[in-house]
Design a protein around this nucleic acid. Structure first.
Length: 946
RNA sequence: GCUCGAGUGGUGGAAUUGGUAGACACGUUGGACUUAAAAUCCAAUGGACAUUAGUCCGUGCGGGUUCAAGUCCCGCCUCGAGUACCA
């Protein structure tokens, strides 16, 4: 019987499922280990061979840890809310829940075929009401919390109310809206309930705010910054414009510093940490307030607050620049400048974000006619507006120091604004000087002669004395918009009374998504949930009205937006610990046992989205005492992307003729994607199948220009995608070579973290390794199972232990590719040694089992074991079998102090030692000195360092 | 522009901490077994000269440190990823 992978794989996959082999217990004497994959969005296209790469790696590690005696949690689920299902619903009327369920079924079938050791009893789906009940619950917790800067943590909103009652908001150090108004305890108690709610909303960790949002008209929805790439929507590439809307926001900015600091606590890839650091964008400096000088036309003085990282250069500030959107622009502009300013503001508003970013070189701006008084010199400083100042960063206004900042310099040159030099011994006639380290300040009153750091300190000190500034740390990280005008997302547990948001009590959760007739926004521009009016009323009736006295005529009673895609994925890793708990998000026992994720594997594209939001929610839940760890994942690995290798045919322009790649010459041709399944590994197109394929009906009558009778296609590496016809599905690989071959091959392809193109050609290598391994256990014409109790030879043991050592090291270092090589060497050696010893083959099966679990399991059972190989003990490495030796040799001396020495055969470690000593002596005679260091390279050579 | 990362045979990639460069695999060539093919097995496979031994050159380029450099240092080149008027 030969290696029948189909039969073996079917058998064991069934067995694992039936016996629940991989179900983890929430308590155990064994140490715990939590291995997690980023759960997928179940798209309609199914899996291609690129998707399982990370899953295979994590599965190998999970299986390895089980062999090492750990109680392993290795779950899988689906991030099943999302835009594609909704857009499909808009087009076809098919309910997203139905398409999503179908897609999940397909995903599950595909995943099962690969033989993963997932604990499916813990599956979660973010679109499942039993799951999003807890997404809604966390939202309520966030609403009922504020961020206490003094304690540096989130606290219950009641503690804030207590503070207000005691002493107003004087002395309350909170992260809150910028425009909170001061009030006393007396004033607080005098406020109407509505007024109190308005104030509290400015402190809550999730709050309603009228913000400028990224509105995508084509998708009819709001997008987060990270959903926009190069000014267009990530999905679909549609135009995005700025628009003011009332949205829910998450006060993630409260956690900016902790999100930054705690990166040191986690073992995550440096590039990923770098991009989070960059995204958070901490910069230290000062906020400085300039006051405008009243004039005949504008009688009032307005304070303009700016943020600068260079307060030391304040004496070089020769003008100020506001973002065109800045709220003071209309207030301070003088009548004679009004026309010009209005025209400029309108022009920038028209330009999309994309245009503005694409063209950063063109300098534009307008003078407002206003002047502000310099804090120290009291000289008038002209106030300009310019689109190089961004409304969304800092205060949307800058003090412009042309001698120290290239953008200010260019602006000043363009508009003929003076460029005073405040740097000692620096020529600024050509460009600005921005080197902090070489800065010595001049022409700056009390700052003269000081270097950068000292000047910054003194400038801030003096500004504080004038009450016109203070040291400040600014973050680029903005609060995250949390509302989407979509159907297929979590509904908010929110209703409104007199326009103020109220939380529905937790006991009524989940607030389930209603059925709607249409998945588009309503005709009045409300979100899709606005189509479900009975739902809205019934929900309020059921959860609120029957319990409280609420006026039925309150305007729209329920929140009609839904939550964004990242809501459900920001805590799922914790829910896996106790996924079927109906009463709690998870039991304290479960979370205290599993604690956090030990190994998390997923793509780097989530660096500033999912991974940042998840850290934020984890920190919040930590503050509230819900989770015991402040970071949710100790170690993280980014697997690389497997790209596709597209194939091209070439049609001669204007003719129905297809020309083989190498015959194109200087003909003008149109390259067309051709399905990669029609091309063999030698790049030859299968002309028969090609002509039969209805996709290529246009070419039925086409002429072919062939080389040596075959059509050679062109190749190019691209992202795997249906539209490029370069998708290779794992199912076809499993069908042809088996899941074990697929698993081994994906690992063998190259380092896990590296991107690489898929190329099916090489898979025969790993496949024949499996066949060879099978033959170690089976012999004769019929291939009967054949393992003996023979004692292992020294060579056998050496081969085995060498492999144990290598494979163990490789797994610990996540170098899975090289361990596959080790398996091949091991099997080659054992087969040339004709090893049939059970004492060798049994540990070998365990060694291979994380990589090729089906064949290992089969052999394990044939060796007479009743229990699954999954928990068999990983074999121990014994170094004594590894002493290497080889043949005789002459000692040579090449004049460069390098000596080669081959060691005699059958030498023990002690013999090698004495040979080295003898060698040292020889060298002493030759050189007249003793070598300091001797290095033995296993096998053949001794190098002596003199 | 800035920040990371990477450049090794025909190809994917090995190379422990500075210690035999090219493991392992694909591909190619030759051979065995076959009527034949497939499968399997064996051998060769960085380049050049020599074909018996052998010698020289070789890890993007140019320098340097070292007995010894793919690996460390300095200066370049190329490619990839992320990010970008962030004051």
């Amino acid at each position: 019987m030969s290696y029948d992978f189909r039969q073996i794989e079917d058998k064991w996959q069934k067995e694992w499922a039936e016996k629940g082999t991989f179900e983890a217990q929430n308590n155990s004497d064994k140490p715990k280990y939590y291995v997690l994959d980023m759960f997928p969005y179940p798209s309609g296209a199914g899996l291609h061979v690129g998707h399982p790469l990370g899953y295979i790696a994590s599965d190998i590690y999970a299986r390895y840890k089980r062999h090492k005696g750990f109680n392993v949690l290795h779950p899988m689920g689906y991030d099943s809310f999302g835009l594609p299902a909704e857009q499909y619903a808009i087009q076809t009327g098919q309910h997203p829940a139905i398409t999503t369920a179908a897609n999940i079924k397909r995903y599950r079938e595909q995943l099962d075929k690969i033989g993963f050791s997932f604990d499916w009893s813990r599956e979660v789906r973010t679109s499942d009401p039993d799951y999003y009940k807890w997404t809604q619950w966390i939202f309520i917790q966030l609403f009922n919390s504020w961020y206490n800067k003094e304690a540096d943590k989130a606290e219950d909103i009641d503690t804030l109310i207590a503070l207000f009652e005691q002493d107003g908001n004087n002395g309350v150090k909170a992260v809150c809206d910028e425009d909170v108004v001061a009030f006393t305890a007396d004033q607080w108690s005098g406020f109407t309930p509505k007024k109190k709610q308005e104030i509290l909303l400015q402190y809550r960790l999730t709050y309603l705010a009228e913000t400028e949002v990224n509105w995508c008209p084509a998708l009819g929805t709001v997008l987060a910054n990270d959903e926009i790439v190069n000014g267009v929507s990530e999905r679909g590439g549609h135009t995005v414009i700025r628009k003011k809307m009332t949205r829910w926001s998450m006060r993630i900015s409260a956690y900016a510093q902790r999100l930054l600091d705690d990166l040191q606590k986690v073992d995550w890839p440096q590039p990923l940490k770098d991009s989070q650091v960059n995204w958070i964008g901490r910069s230290e400096g000062a906020s400085v307030t300039f006051h405008t000088i009243p004039s005949g036309d504008v009688k009032k003085s307005y304070p303009i607050e700016v943020f600068t990282t260079r307060p030391d250069t304040i004496f070089g500030a020769s003008f100020m620049t506001l973002a065109p959107e800045h709220e003071l622009v209309s207030l301070i502009t003088t009548p004679e400048q009004e026309k010009e300013v209005a025209a400029y503001v309108e022009a920038t508003a028209k330009r999309s974000e994309r245009d503005r970013m694409a063209d950063v070189k063109t300098i534009s701006g307008a003078f407002t006619g206003a002047y502000a008084s310099h804090p120290f010199t009291k000289e008038p400083v002209p106030v300009w507006i310019g689109d190089y100042v961004l409304a969304g960063y800092g205060t949307g206004a800058v003090m412009s120091v042309p001698c120290g900042d290239q953008r200010d310099y260019d602006f000043a040159k363009h508009f003929n604004i003076p460029i005073p030099n405040i740097f000692e011994g620096i020529d600024i006639s050509e460009e600005a000087f921005a080197d902090k380290e070489k800065t010595i300040i001049a022409n700056s009153d009390f700052l003269n002669g000081l270097p950068y750091k000292k000047a910054v300190k003194l400038a801030i000190y003096e500004l504080e004395k004038l009450e016109q500034g203070k040291g400040k740390i600014n973050y680029r990280l903005r609060d995250a918009v949390f509302s989407r005008q979509r159907y297929w997302g979590e509904p908010f547990p929110v209703y409104y009374v007199e326009g103020m948001p109220q939380m529905i009590e937790s006991k009524y959760l989940p607030i389930e998504l209603p059925e709607v007739e249409k998945y588009l926004p309503t005709e009045t521009g409300e979100p899709p949930l606005g189509n479900a009016t009975t739902w809205a009323w019934n929900t309020v009736e059921h959860t609120v009205v029957s319990n409280k006295m609420i006026d039925h005529r309150t305007v729209f009673p329920l929140e009609l937006n839904t939550m964004p895609g990242w809501a459900g994925s920001s805590f799922y890793f914790n829910r896996y610990m106790d996924p079927n708990n109906e009463n709690e998000i998870f039991s304290q026992d479960a979370i205290n046992y599993w604690q956090d994720v030990d190994l998390y594997i997923g793509g780097s594209e989530h660096a500033t989205g999912h991974l940042l939001y998840s850290r934020f929610w984890q920190k919040f839940l930590f503050d509230k005492g819900v989770v015991p760890k402040e970071e949710f994942a100790k170690k993280l690995i980014n697997q690389g992307m497997i790209t596709g290798t597209s194939a091209f045919i070439y049609r001669i322009e204007g003719e129905n003729t297809l020309v083989s790649k190498n015959l194109i010459g200087d003909r003008s041709v149109q390259p067309l994607h051709v399905d990669v399944s029609l091309v063999n590994p030698s790049d030859e197109l299968d002309l028969v199948k090609f002509k039969e394929n209805p996709l290529y009906a246009d070419f039925k009558e086409a002429k072919f220009l062939l080389e040596d009778g075959v059509y050679i296609v062109g190749r190019e590496v691209e992202k795997m995608s249906k539209s490029k016809y370069n998708v290779v599905s794992p199912d076809s690989i499993c069908e042809d070579f088996g899941a074990d071959s697929l698993r081994l091959y994906e690992m063998f392809l190259g380092p896990l973290e590296q991107s690489k193109p898929w190329n099916t050609a090489g898979i025969t290598g790993v496949h024949s390794f499996l066949k060879k391994m099978w033959r170690l256990f089976h012999s004769g014409e019929e291939g009967a199972f054949n393992v003996t109790d023979d004692e292992a030879t020294a060579d056998n043991l050496k081969t085995l232990h060498k492999t144990i050592k290598k494979v163990e090291e490789d797994i610990e270092n996540f170098s899975f590719n090289t361990s596959v090589s080790s398996f091949m060497i091991c099997v080659n050696e054992l087969s040339s040694q004709k090893c049939t010893s059970k004492s060798i083959l049994e540990p070998l099966a365990i060694l291979v089992s994380p990589y090729a679990p089906h064949i290992a399991e089969e052999l394990w059972s044939k060796l007479g074991h009743k229990a699954s190989i999954a928990t068999a003990e990983f074999p121990k490495y014994e170094g004594k079998y590894l002493v290497e030796s080889s043949k005789e040799y002459p000692i040579s001396f090449n004049g460069k102090m390098r000596f080669k020495m081959e060691l005699p055969a059958d030498m023990s470690a002690a013999d090698i030692e004495s040979a080295v000593m003898a060698h040292k002596k020889t060298q002493e005679q030759l050189q007249g000195r003793t070598p300091k260091k001797v290095i033995v390279v296993p096998g053949k050579i001794v190098n002596v360092v003199g």
